[in-house]
């Protein structure tokens, strides 16, 4: 019931926005076509890129390419960042060792890495993956670290009292205890991945949603810009939703209702 009514609310709001858009651009002409394209134009651009292609490829090729870069950068960042954050949270020595470097690197915006990434790895995908990695890495580390620090001290003491050691401690205490914050980190990392991807693809990319934006800007083709923007939104929302599904399954204890 709840899910159904929420979905219908979302659809209703979307429909209202499109109607408003239609009224503003097509019916009344309040917003001129140079500023905001009409819904019909955007639809036609969508059909054009989906069937005939635009900027070196068809829509699904661009989308898949962007998805692939995000998936790779995000996955590597998470696989390195989460364990590093957990380690820093658990061991004072690791924190003392890593934190100074981390504090220094942290304020550098991921986009500032683009020039260096290009110098190191050229204009290809590798440079873009590196930039996405840098952007996604930081929230993964920080939130995993905070996750460990947020575990109730008595719970950690109880684990020591029970004689829980090493592997079992990491797997059954440290990780599940930090999991809520780890997932907060993953969500922020994913968001950062998409933001950075588009920026990275604006520079010298053959495929990808960012390259469509770049190409359409050069062609002064606002309707195509909107198609690309909408698909960035759809991709970001879909991957975030997927992550939410994983999160719910990973922490069943948070979703069971109270008894009695």
């Amino acid at each position: 019931m709840f899910v159904g009514s929420r979905l219908s609310t979302v659809l209703l709001v979307l429909a209202a926005m499109i109607v408003l858009w239609y009224v503003a651009t097509t019916i009344t002409g309040l917003v001129g076509p140079a500023r905001l394209p009409q819904p019909l134009e955007v639809w036609q651009s969508f059909v054009a890129i989906a069937t005939d292609g635009y900027g070196n490829g068809r829509l699904h090729q661009h989308v898949l390419h962007s998805l692939k870069l995000v998936a790779m950068g995000f996955t590597v960042a998470v696989c390195v960042g989460v364990p590093l954050g957990l380690w820093m949270g658990h061991s004072r020595r690791a924190e003392a060792l890593i934190n100074p470097t981390f504090l220094l690197l942290r304020p550098i915006p991921p986009l500032a890495w683009i020039p260096l990434a290009i110098v190191w790895l050229g204009l290809g995908d590798a440079a873009k993956i590196l930039v996405i990695f840098v952007a996604a890495f930081v929230p993964s580390v920080i939130n995993s670290y905070t996750g460990v620090r947020n575990i109730d001290k008595p719970v950690l003491e109880a684990a020591r009292m029970l004689g829980i050691r090493r592997f079992s401690f990491v797997r059954e205490v440290l990780v599940p205890g930090s999991l809520p914050m780890i997932f907060t980190g993953l969500r922020l990392s994913l968001q950062a991945s998409w933001t950075t991807l588009v920026a990275a693809e604006l520079i010298g990319a053959l495929y990808g949603l960012g390259s469509i934006l770049n190409q359409a800007a050069q062609d002064i083709y606002p309707a195509m810009i909107m198609v690309a923007m909408i698909f960035v939104g759809i991709c970001g929302a879909t991957t975030t939703w997927l992550l939410g599904q994983v999160e719910a399954r990973a922490m069943p204890w948070r979703h069971e209702r109270a008894l009695q």
């Binding site: 109730d152 008595p154 003491e157 109880a158 684990a159 020591r160 009292m161 029970l162 922490m251 204890w253």
Partner: peptide, 20 residues
Amino acid sequence: IEPGPDRAVVFQQFALFPWK
């Protein structure tokens, strides 16, 4: 010299593992 299961503790705040 260290905590261990031969000296079981019952904590004021229960200290159960919420995920178990």
